[in-house]
Design a protein around this nucleic acid. Sequence first.
DNA 1: TGAATGACTCGAT
DNA 2: GATCGAGCCATTC
Length: 111
Amino acid sequence: MKNYSFYEQVFDVVRAVPYGRVTTYGAIANYLGAKRSSRLVGWAMNISHGTLPPVPAHRVVNRQGLLTGKSHFAHPNRMQELLESEGVAVAGDQVVGFNDIFWDPSSLDRP
DNA sequence: TGAATGACTCGAT
DNA sequence: GATCGAGCCATTC
């Protein structure tokens, strides 16, 4: 059983993202010790739809702050709606002040 | 078992 | 400074 597979770790990190903050795939992968595995993080989000508790994938953006995964939401605009609902300004498909609201999982106390 | 996939990142031109 | 291509890793069929 691999219930706590690499994906579970990604979900846990994404769910740890504070309200009104965003993180990047690379930051999560780096926190897990595989900065090169940024693609795995994206794939983890792909299966996170039926995962509980829900994973705030809308808080995960690419290194440029672009909502690359918005197309995978129920509705492409849903990701922006959720971000704006949390006070995160989004211009076009990019997070405004991304560098300011960027949250690094390394900030957490690692066991 | 081997090959394929992917919501990214980095380096080079 | 911007654009293009290749690489990387873990999971799944």
